Amino acid sequence: MTPWAVLVLAVGTYALRMAGPLSHGRFEPSERARRMLTVSATVLLFALVATSAVADGQSLAGWARPAGVLVGGALALRRAPFLAAVVAAAATTAVLRWFGVS
Rank of each mutant, 00 (worst) to 15 (best):
L75N: 04
L77W: 06
V69Q: 02
L45P: 01
A53P: 06
L70V: 14
L48T: 08
A67Y: 01
L44Q: 01
A47P: 11
S59P: 07
S52C: 03
L37W: 06
G72P: 09
V69W: 12
G62A: 12
L37C: 04
A64E: 00
L44F: 15
M36S: 11
V71R: 11
S59D: 12
A80L: 10
F46Y: 09
M36Q: 10
D56A: 02
A50S: 04
L75D: 13
A67P: 04
S40P: 11
T38L: 05
S40G: 03
G57T: 02
A53E: 00
A53V: 06
V71N: 12
A80R: 13
S52Q: 08
G73M: 02
G72A: 10
P66F: 07
M36T: 12
L44H: 03
W63A: 10
T51W: 04
R79S: 15
T38E: 15
R35A: 10
S59W: 05
G72Q: 10
V69T: 14
V43D: 03
D56H: 12
V49C: 07
T51N: 06
A41C: 10
V54L: 03
R35F: 08
A47F: 10
A64K: 12
V71G: 13
L37F: 00
R65V: 15
S52Y: 14
V54D: 07
G73K: 13
A64R: 03
L37Y: 02
F46N: 09
L77S: 13
L75H: 11
G73F: 09
R65P: 02
R34N: 04
R32Y: 05
T51M: 02
L44T: 15
S52V: 03
L45M: 11
V43M: 00
Q58T: 11
T42V: 08
A64D: 00
G72I: 14
L48D: 02
A61P: 05
A80V: 14
P66N: 09
M36I: 14
T38S: 15
V49D: 05
A55I: 01
V39T: 06
W63V: 05
G68D: 09
V43Y: 01
M36W: 11
V49M: 08
V43H: 07
V69P: 14
A61W: 09
V39M: 10
A33V: 11
V69Y: 03
L60I: 09
V71P: 07
G72Y: 14
G68Q: 06
T38R: 02
G68Y: 13
A74D: 07
A41K: 12
W63P: 06
L37H: 04
M36P: 04
S40R: 12
S59F: 06
L45Q: 07
R79N: 15
A41M: 13
A76H: 03
S52F: 14
S52M: 06
R35K: 02
L45E: 05
G72H: 09
V69K: 02
G57N: 01
P66E: 01
S52I: 01
S52R: 10
P66W: 04
T51F: 05
D56K: 01
R78I: 04
A33W: 03
A33D: 08
